[in-house]
Design a protein around this nucleic acid. Structure first.
Lengths: 411, 411
DNA sequence: CCATATAGTTCAGGACATAAACTAAATGGC
DNA sequence: GCCATTTAGTTTATGTCCTGAACTATATGG
């Protein structure tokens, strides 16, 4: 296992500058131009030279290294009716991929994601993880991983790294889950080497909301470089993208919207606090307020969520007001977060996206009431990401690390 | 006027990598080692080579450029009783400085700050700016600036740039104050060229809280790389330092703690919202809750603040509970901000620092109640920064930009 | 078959960091 | 007073890498 990206980045920035660094930077530059091109837009060396502002000579040399490293492949191009020597197309090697995985409360999932971020194959396995120990869950995920590794071998795919998303706070450097109350985990060291054994592999651990934010980024307009992703799962998480990069904060725990205080005299929260957003807009809180009981096992939650939607669709109280109350609280929390982060786009995922039609009116009214000066420019979107969102985001981010540091794979 | 740092940085990162970039990076590297040395620690070329991990040959060559650019000077060193050729000390040129300025509600200020961040000279002028137009205030500040420019000339100081802090939201690129409700300004373009006319000058515009945070950074332990500075002035601002850099957000408005919602059903705020922190912990709110009237001119505010402290020292209600209520609200807002930013250190400045003994108990109790899991590691400090804080921070930041991009001044 | 156009490669030149050899300037023992 | 020793700093040969210009490769179209 290589070092996670953060420390690798720190190391490279603290290293002295020598001429070789220029090549590292330019390898990454060329690769980012290739990766930045559209789906089936095949750039030639000449195109890359123009886009990267490097000379054709440099580009040829750099591309040769990328070809040798297997990050890029040449692909024939036929341009009808144009003069001149035909160009050779260059694309990211579609036979290189990253394994994304997720452990959530009610399922585990894994998938193969290519360097362009496309999900090639995946498998989702229902699994009541709250009642399981970390090692049991990891064993099951390990099996899932092995199946996908076999699938990769069968298709000639090389796995260059992996990412795992969990619904809780993680220490990325130590591969430790610090707190995942909805899994019932606390301070669990994860033996990630067992998930993806190849020693040459780069592996990173993610918070579920952060990973989902990274997946959401792929769906946004490239100009939308700043947004907050709010993940409504059993808990409420948040992932912040600033200047097209994940803003994780000093310890990697930034964005945790679930425990923003929105009712100072409110209910006690599982975090020990009082009046947190999660006590009103979390899944359990909504279900409880909708008079759908308070049992916590996975099977019953699925059933109760189904009942909630039935009640909403028939316009039955107290379900309607439970969701409206959640929307109102969400509007307050989002108002504060938008102010503190200075973002004007917020994307809602998980149950918030599913509840959009009942949630949005109350949320917008609340935002208008508490922050009229920003409500006008606010863009509140709902995410189409499903259960593969977090694994795709985790894998995509690891793939991005590889594309940013191609010299590690060259020569 | 050169471009502000943000665009300059973007430009350099989007430029293609050539060998010259290595030199730019190494110039900055050597300079940061010199700047990072203690007050009167005089590093030799040999010391720098060790600390920067560059070779002696490279350091000699780089230092020669920095000397030629006037950013660094040689200074004799006598080491008693040591063998070997004596080293030549290198320090930041003490004859280079940056002009910091501030426009606040009740005063204007300007000062000269050397490249190490030391305030060399300053002047503070009481000025009731709420009742003045932007051009009047700028004219007065221009005069102040001229006096300091004359002082600089008299002392042989060369002014390399300037920074101006204002209590409001700014657009740094356009030198525009977007909103400064406490000055009564909205969308004011500032003719900063009139403040510091030299065409070679780099000039930047700052939010007051951000500038203060940058000044506070100088007072912190170097290991304290992440903290939130909360500025209690007429309004409540915030400046966030993450990884030893200002986190300004996409538009430069991040950190605005004053309009975090802490009482959803609370009082209307000047921002048009409801229940913002400022409606309870802002200066006017505290004075009003302490039954000290609600007149808004500067002279009366100074008098009423004096009365507030008298009442607090004699333990008189309702002053005590007004401040306690502010502390409670501050605790709630800080709990949310600490969660969202993932910082564990918060530094309070302005009237919050002055009110510490009456504010702190309520604030700590509130933080403990609303976020017990982070209250334990939370470090809540009060800042000793006075009225020169913002100007020093603005100047220091501009000086930092110069030290980060020395190639602009070399050759 | 050849002019034209575009893609990509080769090669000389210059900037830069590096390592090793070299010069400079002090101390301290004799 | 002289010389070995020690540390500071400079000079020089070498290799990497980008650049620009010349050159080769490969298509179209008259």
């Amino acid at each position: 296992m290589r070092q996670p990206a953060s420390s690798a980045r720190a190391a490279s920035s603290s290293a002295p500058g020598n001429v070789g660094d220029v090549r590292k930077a330019n390898l990454a530059r060329v690769l980012s131009v290739i990766a930045g091109a559209g789906e089936d837009q095949r750039l030639s060396r000449a195109d890359i030279a123009q886009l990267s502002q490097l000379t054709k000579a440099s580009v040829s040399s750099l591309v040769a290294d990328l070809l040798a490293a297997g990050l890029v492949i040449e692909i024939g191009v036929h341009r009808d009716g144009e003069r001149g020597r035909p160009s050779v197309g260059l694309i990211l090697n579609p036979a290189r991929c990253v394994m994304g995985m997720e452990i959530n409360v009610d399922y585990i999932a894994a998938g193969l994601v290519d360097l362009s971020g496309k999900l090639l194959a995946h498998e989702i396995l229902p699994s009541a993880n709250h009642s399981s120990t970390a090692s049991e869950v990891l064993a099951a995920l390990g099996e899932l991983s092995q199946r996908l590794q076999a699938a990769a071998r069968a298709q000639g795919l090389m796995i260059l790294g992996g990412g795992l998303a969990v619904p809780g706070l993680v220490n990325e450097e130590r591969y430790t889950v610090l707190q995942a109350p909805n899994l019932g985990w606390e301070r669990q060291d994860l033996d990630v080497a067992a998930l993806l054994p190849d020693a040459k592999t780069r592996f990173r651990l993610f918070n579920e909301a952060n990973a989902s934010a990274l997946a959401q980024q792929q769906l946004m307009d490239v100009k939308e470089r700043d947004f907050l992703f709010v993940s409504g799962e059993v808990g409420i998480g948040g992932g912040l993208i600033i200047d097209a990069e994940l803003f994780a904060g000093p310890q990697g725990h930034a964005g945790e919207l679930g425990h923003v205080v929105i009712a100072p005299e409110g209910r006690a929260c599982s975090c020990g606090g009082r009046g947190c957003l999660e006590t009103i807009a979390g899944q359990e809180a909504i279900l409880a307020a909708a008079d759908l009981g308070a049992m916590v096992d996975s099977a019953s939650r699925q059933r109760r969520i189904h009942q909630l939607f039935q009640a909403l669709e028939t316009g039955t109280e107290p379900a309607l007001s439970a969701v409206a109350e959640a929307g109102k609280s969400l509007g307050i929390a989002v108002a504060s977060a938008m102010r503190l982060y200075d973002v004007s786009t917020v994307v809602f995922g998980g149950h918030f996206a599913a509840l959009e039609q009942w949630l949005r009116p109350a949320m917008e009214a609340s935002l208008q009431m508490h922050a009229p000066s920003i409500a006008g420019q606010a863009r509140l979107l709902c995410s189409p990401l499903g259960q593969t969102g977090a694994l795709v985001g985790a894998a995509r981010s690891v793939a991005g690390d590889l594309l940013e540091a191609p010299h590690q794979l060259v020569g």
